[in-house]
Design a protein around this nucleic acid. Structure first.
Lengths: 134, 134
DNA sequence: CGAATCCTCAACCATATGGTTGAGGATAGC
DNA sequence: GCTATCCTCAACCATATGGTTGAGGATTCG
């Protein structure tokens, strides 16, 4: 029942550190070596190397060894899985759409599917929410 | 320098564990007590309680103490921030790989190794990326 | 060749995570 | 009041994370 998703674990974990998000952000502008990725970060090269490995482990970075340097490229496919997971909750923040649009500096999505809060078919033992009425 | 985002750190970290994602999934169907959240998980109540606290810390769960039970409600707003961050990378997995190539360094070769950054003083071309600061 | 460069590896350290158990505070129910 | 229930807290343990330094393999350059 408790469907395990080690892949999602790895992706979210990789994103849970600012240094790694920073690396991805910079990789979005083009391939970079480990040394270049490490440069702006205030940590040793070895530490940055570990972060790269975490990203690689999550499938977010692809490494190509070119002689003595390791060139890293962004592989964003795994992020799609993360977004897919998050998308499920979009309907729940509709009450705060304004907040969402404030963060997204882009025009909001038209209207994906349903914007209604939970009324769907999926009603997994919706317990009476004890204490709801006191 | 490396702009810190403790909020994003907390959200992504909260999502990086299957038990916590499972909790959010179930909370999407309605408010649940800590005990109910813990029930399907194969761990002690105390352990589940810690997970709830992690979610709470990330702002993903709102707790209302009702007598002796703690009722948890989903607060999905922080997820919007996570999605906003991820959305930036949509262009890269959206079959618009050409966009990547375009942003890629000046060398037009498809081989990322061509991103050969100078011999001595490399100058990684920094295209505008969100929140880029170094 | 010899030296500089890029990067990983291994050892080490401090702290965080994720789990357990046991104690117990606060309520609810009898 | 007494007891059962719900949940947190504290202590403890094992392992993971995130950082350091030092050694050194592999390349590239002079």
């Amino acid at each position: 029942m408790v469907e395990d998703s080690p892949e999602l674990d790895a992706v979210f974990h990789a994103l849970a550190h600012d240094a790694r998000r920073e690396m991805l952000r910079r990789l979005a502008t083009g391939a970079l070596t480990v040394g270049q990725l490490a440069e702006p970060l205030l940590m040793s090269l070895a530490a940055a190397s570990k972060h790269v490995k975490v990203l690689e482990n999550a499938g977010l970075v692809e490494r190509t060894v070119m002689g003595r340097r390791h060139v890293c490229r962004l592989r964003s496919a795994p992020l799609a899985g993360a977004v897919a997971w998050l998308r499920f909750y979009e309907r729940f923040w509709d009450e705060r759409i304004d907040a969402l649009e404030r963060v997204l500096d882009r025009p909001p999505a038209p209207d994906p599917a349903q914007a209604r809060p939970g009324t769907s078919d999926e009603t997994p033992s919706r317990s009476p929410a004890p204490g709801e009425a006191s």
